[in-house]
Amino acid sequence: MTTQPQEKLVISGLHAAVEGQEILKGVDLEIGRGEIHALMGPNGSGKSTLGYCIMGHPSYEVTAGSIELVEADGTRHDLLAMEPDQRARAGVFLAFQRPMSIPGVRLADFLRHAVTNVRNPDRKEGQELMPMRDFRSELKAKMADLSIDTEFARRYVNDGFSGGEMKRAEILQLAMLRPKFAILDETDSGLDADAVRLASQSIARIGGAEMGILIITHHEQLLEHNIPLRTHVMLGGRIVESGGPELAAELHKRGYERIRAAYPEAAAAEQSMQDALGNETAQPVTA
């Protein structure tokens, strides 16, 4: 573990609402590059909302607090002032729980735009893309590394993909974009045990000293190859408890009853949020 000053993603006192309904009620979280954090919690506790707020989803309104990138020398960059694509170019990545399909656009072409922009943050539309030859060889190498057939890149982005294929495509994009900070929103959901193990291994290969990762999950399997430095538990829109990897194992085994009992205020907030939303998970609302 590094003790030198490092670049950090710093979330302070974050409040956020969707359609006037407050979901996040004061979230504090710090992730350094090279660190793995796990974020757990029952459905509807605000985990995905946190991911969307970090990335800048237009349906989520941040009502208080801050999200900043803080460089090793202390220089601060306000993510909330940036468009989602600027955040991506600044080194932030969100692996979607439910990625959108873009029919007619090949994954390779989509990724070539993405990689070019993220690596040349000042690129304007219409300027040169990464040379096809370089891009191809890099993409092929990454696909081989992740045991993904190269034909996959010819398919249209998430169009007709199975749940597992979508998650693999997200991991492939993570590998190509090499962000400073990655939020993986239930990259294990909908996968069978073998697929989760493969995903866990893949993430471990991609991560490393250069990447801070926030893994949002219900299960500990995804953490098998990605031992978290810290495990955080979210309930009712707040992080109510943090601990080591043993906390993830406990929650996976025993559920959230102990947490709810220990934090009755957050449990009450959870209940009222679910009543208000009328569904179990907070889904983005299309404008």
Binding site: M55, G56, A88, M100
Partner: peptide, 11 residues
């Protein structure tokens, strides 16, 4: 779809 692509660095 636009947000998804933006999250990958496309304007």
């Amino acid at each position: 779809q636009i947000f998804y692509a933006q999250a990958r660095g496309l304007s």
